[in-house]
Amino acid sequence: MEVRTIKVFTTVDNINLHTQVVDMSMTYGQQFGPTYLDGADVTKIKPHNSHEGKTFYVLPNDDTLRVEAFEYYHTTDPSFLGRYMSALNHTKKWKYPQVNGLTSIKWADNNCYLATALLTLQQIELKFNPPALQDAYYRARAGEAANFCALILAYCNKTVGELGDVRETMSYLFQHANLDSCKRVLNVVCKTCGQQQTTLKGVEAVMYMGTLSYEQFKKGVQIPCTCGKQATKYLVQQESPFVMMSAPPAQYELKHGTFTCASEYTGNYQCGHYKHITSKETLYCIDGALLTKSSEYKGPITDVFYKENSYTTTIK
């Protein structure tokens, strides 16, 4: 009895394709271990004539594949690729409408935090270190965002349907971005203890939790000093293409032309909904596939993004 075979390709990165001759009487799992086709788990399936010449994702289970996976995804987590594939199996079914010149995501599976993050990423200057993220990001900007969303979920250790947080998501993504040249110098002034300067680099240099107003941050924000008295913390120097200011959701007025974009969060910790506000020729609110415009805006804002380049204080 002759062994019926077909020729397929296996890959971990969709760049390096490895030619395989597979036995049609055995499952993919018996031949390769966990195997995925377009995100779908085909591990328990036997090869079919229609699979001839198709590319299958496999887990990096030998040295060659491990090197290829690390170079593309910059992670050695053995569960990463499987999590990416199972997320992709959902995100490829989502709709990605162009809204006001940006790629958004039609609401499904509690994905409003991903839509808000995706919209924000198209408006701030950011370059990702893992080629996987950078490639998928370019495709997302062009309207094909399924891979990018699935990668975000995998890097953030999230599953489809789980509630997510924009600030946490951005923080994970910033860790995989090139923020080497970003720098922030802060000064804390206390009447009792004097003053202390701190220099922050990388992710810490672009994120701040405690106030939404970048102007206020430049002037000074009140913080408790270690001595128990009130101290003032203010920005001395900022070198970065953008800054992200966050605070627990509270009524906040966004003035046209003073910011790049913002995240609105309605609801409580267990259950809520994100919308995205962007400042173009007027203010726009993007909620999944829905767009509304207004000249002014007041609502429960939790993150505001500002364009920056270089700032030095005039406070002496």
Results as ranks from 00 to 15, higher is better:
residue 2 E to H: 05
residue 2 E to C: 14
residue 3 V to D: 15
residue 6 I to S: 04
residue 6 I to V: 09
residue 7 K to Y: 11
residue 7 K to R: 11
residue 7 K to W: 11
residue 14 N to V: 04
residue 14 N to A: 13
residue 15 I to R: 14
residue 20 Q to Y: 08
residue 21 V to P: 10
residue 24 M to P: 11
residue 27 T to D: 08
residue 28 Y to I: 02
residue 28 Y to W: 14
residue 30 Q to S: 07
residue 30 Q to G: 09
residue 30 Q to E: 03
residue 31 Q to G: 01
residue 36 Y to R: 03
residue 38 D to W: 09
residue 40 A to Y: 11
residue 41 D to F: 01
residue 42 V to E: 03
residue 43 T to G: 09
residue 43 T to F: 04
residue 44 K to W: 11
residue 44 K to G: 12
residue 47 P to I: 00
residue 50 S to Q: 14
residue 50 S to W: 14
residue 51 H to N: 04
residue 52 E to I: 10
residue 54 K to M: 10
residue 55 T to Y: 04
residue 55 T to P: 07
residue 56 F to M: 12
residue 57 Y to F: 08
residue 57 Y to P: 01
residue 58 V to G: 00
residue 60 P to K: 06
residue 60 P to E: 05
residue 62 D to K: 10
residue 64 T to M: 13
residue 65 L to S: 12
residue 66 R to A: 08
residue 68 E to D: 10
residue 68 E to F: 02
residue 69 A to N: 05
residue 70 F to W: 12
residue 72 Y to P: 04
residue 74 H to K: 06
residue 76 T to Y: 11
residue 76 T to D: 15
residue 76 T to A: 09
residue 77 D to T: 00
residue 78 P to F: 07
residue 79 S to A: 06
residue 80 F to M: 00
residue 80 F to K: 01
residue 81 L to R: 06
residue 81 L to N: 00
residue 85 M to L: 14
residue 90 H to T: 10
residue 90 H to R: 14
residue 91 T to H: 00
residue 92 K to P: 00
residue 92 K to L: 11
residue 94 W to I: 00
residue 94 W to D: 01
residue 98 Q to F: 09
residue 100 N to I: 07
residue 101 G to W: 01
residue 101 G to D: 03
residue 102 L to V: 07
residue 102 L to S: 05
residue 104 S to C: 08
residue 104 S to A: 05
residue 105 I to P: 01
residue 105 I to F: 02
residue 106 K to Y: 06
residue 110 N to K: 08
residue 110 N to A: 04
residue 113 Y to F: 08
residue 113 Y to G: 03
residue 114 L to G: 05
residue 115 A to Q: 05
residue 116 T to C: 12
residue 116 T to A: 10
residue 117 A to G: 03
residue 118 L to D: 02
residue 118 L to Y: 03
residue 119 L to W: 04
residue 122 Q to E: 03
residue 126 L to M: 12
residue 128 F to S: 00
residue 129 N to K: 06
residue 130 P to R: 02
residue 130 P to N: 11
residue 132 A to S: 06
residue 135 D to Y: 06
residue 138 Y to H: 14
residue 139 R to I: 02
residue 141 R to T: 13
residue 142 A to F: 11
residue 144 E to M: 05
residue 144 E to R: 10
residue 144 E to T: 06
residue 145 A to D: 04
residue 146 A to L: 03
residue 148 F to V: 02
residue 151 L to Q: 03
residue 152 I to N: 03
residue 152 I to W: 03
residue 155 Y to D: 01
residue 157 N to A: 05
residue 160 V to I: 15
residue 161 G to T: 03
residue 161 G to S: 07
residue 167 R to A: 03
residue 169 T to F: 03
residue 171 S to C: 14
residue 173 L to Q: 00
residue 175 Q to P: 04
residue 175 Q to Y: 05
residue 176 H to F: 11
residue 176 H to V: 03
residue 178 N to L: 04
residue 181 S to R: 12
residue 182 C to Q: 04
residue 182 C to V: 06
residue 185 V to E: 01
residue 189 V to S: 04
residue 190 C to I: 02
residue 190 C to D: 02
residue 191 K to V: 09
residue 192 T to D: 09
residue 193 C to K: 04
residue 196 Q to A: 11
residue 198 T to F: 09
residue 200 L to K: 11
residue 200 L to M: 08
residue 201 K to V: 04
residue 204 E to I: 01
residue 206 V to S: 02
residue 206 V to D: 07
residue 207 M to D: 05
residue 208 Y to D: 12
residue 209 M to K: 09
residue 210 G to D: 02
residue 211 T to W: 01
residue 212 L to K: 12
residue 213 S to C: 08
residue 214 Y to N: 06
residue 216 Q to Y: 08
residue 217 F to S: 07
residue 218 K to V: 07
residue 221 V to T: 10
residue 222 Q to Y: 04
residue 224 P to R: 12
residue 225 C to V: 04
residue 226 T to E: 13
residue 229 K to W: 09
residue 230 Q to T: 11
residue 230 Q to Y: 15
residue 231 A to Q: 08
residue 231 A to D: 02
residue 231 A to W: 02
residue 232 T to F: 06
residue 232 T to A: 07
residue 232 T to Q: 12
residue 236 V to R: 04
residue 238 Q to Y: 02
residue 240 S to A: 12
residue 241 P to D: 15
residue 241 P to E: 08
residue 243 V to L: 07
residue 243 V to H: 02
residue 244 M to N: 05
residue 246 S to G: 07
residue 247 A to N: 08
residue 248 P to Y: 00
residue 248 P to W: 07
residue 249 P to T: 08
residue 252 Y to T: 13
residue 252 Y to K: 07
residue 254 L to T: 09
residue 255 K to M: 13
residue 259 F to H: 06
residue 263 S to I: 15
residue 264 E to Q: 09
residue 266 T to D: 12
residue 268 N to C: 09
residue 268 N to W: 05
residue 270 Q to V: 06
residue 272 G to L: 02
residue 273 H to M: 04
residue 274 Y to P: 07
residue 275 K to S: 05
residue 278 T to E: 06
residue 279 S to C: 09
residue 281 E to S: 08
residue 283 L to Y: 04
residue 283 L to Q: 02
residue 285 C to S: 09
residue 285 C to P: 05
residue 287 D to A: 02
residue 288 G to M: 01
residue 290 L to R: 10
residue 296 E to C: 12
residue 296 E to T: 14
residue 297 Y to K: 05
residue 299 G to K: 03
residue 299 G to D: 03
residue 301 I to P: 05
residue 302 T to N: 05
residue 303 D to Y: 01
residue 305 F to Q: 07
residue 306 Y to L: 05
residue 307 K to Q: 12
residue 308 E to G: 08
residue 309 N to S: 14
residue 309 N to P: 13
residue 314 T to E: 12
residue 315 I to G: 13
residue 315 I to W: 12
